[in-house]
Amino acid sequence: MTAGQAFLWVLALIAFGFCLRRGPAAGHRAVADAGRNLLKILPMFAVALPMAAFLAELVPADAASGWIGPESGLAGIAIASFAGGLMPGGPFVTFPLVLTFAKAGAGVAQMSALITGWSIFAIHRIVTWEYPVLGWRFVMLRLISGLPLPIAAGLIADAVLQVLPITLGRP
């Protein structure tokens, strides 16, 4: 277990402790809720992780270095921002794929733009949740307000990288 995972467990157990202080029923509800969500998320993992692994094998080692490589600049940041919006699923899809792109030569600033673009534009989430629950006007309001953010995130990351040489991947 890494330090980050240990930290997460400490946070979880503290929060669970507060639940138990409210009474055994709240603790029980929390565990049941977590179990239900685990059952919902496992099928996603079962298809998303193999998909990312197959794509990682298929994508040639330098495939991403041209369009979204570290030298691709503003154009690469814009492409990555747009591509982020097309990512077809939740974090269990996106983060393994970002790792795949990074191994295939994608730039760190471009991946910052891609994750930001996915967070803001993810089409599947708009179609399946945001539009049915909140309506088109809210979707437009949020998309227009958030439009420049992925490119801004990429450019700021690019500036940070000039000073701090941050890399992508497991420590």
């Binding site: 995972q5 997460l8 467990w9 946070l11 979880a12 157990l13 929060a15 669970f16 507060f18 639940c19 409210r22 709240a26 509800r29 929390a30 565990v31 809720d33 977590a34 969500n37 685990l38 998320i41």
Partner: peptide, 13 residues
Amino acid sequence: LAGLLLAAALRQL
């Protein structure tokens, strides 16, 4: 697992 437990506990709180 830790994230799911934390999320569920926070929803109660």
